[in-house]
Amino acid sequence: MTREITYVEAIAEALDEELSRDDDVILFGEDVEEFGGNFGETEGLYEKHGRDRVRNTPLSEIGIAGMALGAAVGGIRPVAELQFADFAATAGDEVFNQIPKQPYVSGGRLEAPLTIFAPSGAGIGAGAQHSQSVHSWLGNVPGWVVVTATTPYDAKGLFKSAIRDDNPVFFLPHKMLSETKGEVPDEEYTLPLGEAVVEEDGEDVTVVATQLMFHRAKEAAAEVDADVEIVNPRTFAPLDTETIAESVRKTGRLVVVDETVERYGTQGYIANEIVENEFFSFDAPPKTIGVKDVPIPLSPPLEQEVLPSADRIAAGIESLF
């Protein structure tokens, strides 16, 4: 049996269930208590689980991320929120130098089972410092498991797995999807990390897309005169290239669309992985589509200009035939 919930409710349910299941799980971040998070993602948790388990922090991502690292090494399972994914940069040393590298430099003796989650993505007119998709930044630093969520089903199942995983996991919901609805199972479930999923079967072309871009790719697929297969990577690092390669072996064409900036972005990396290993499966050159190489502007017409639209994705697909 399933029921319909919103994407934000899925996130709140994942947190609630993991806080209930495991006493070592604690949640902290800015405004996670009564305020309930910017998008309602922590609503009701503080009242239910108490102030020892759900903690407001002072305003510093350095403190939040650094404390999460120490708490994880110290033997508990912290889940820490940054209010916007862009703020990974304000905790730059913790996010890029400390968390992903400490388990490695310890020779595997030190374990950091922490989760940081932060809403990412553009589309709400939040400007250049509250709209970025940062999984390309994070994916460039070995040590992070980088996970994105596309539907309420993904958001709940992947977030629960992120919390249970023994690696540092950066979990990235997309803020434009907050109020979207979808089916989730009535019973408890988790979804595997490190595995991509074929969301739509097709024969002619493989489109790799996640988060908001997945939904736009679906729109694009309905517009074009081709049978489109859509693969959702779910985890960006480490990437499940095999599921994508298998799809391309069938379709012979590849479009990678992602909301990260095109320059040195995820799209080029994914395309390269497949081209290098599956070159002779291709019937056409791969196509990559991302945010144009500019900061995200505020005004809606400008913002929409730089984000991949369904039309741009459709044009990209059609260019391969």
Binding site: G66, G70, I76
Partner: peptide, 10 residues
């Protein structure tokens, strides 16, 4: 120092 704060929290 922030990791040390986290260790104390744990």
């Amino acid at each position: 120092q922030n990791p040390a704060v986290g260790l104390a929290l744990a």
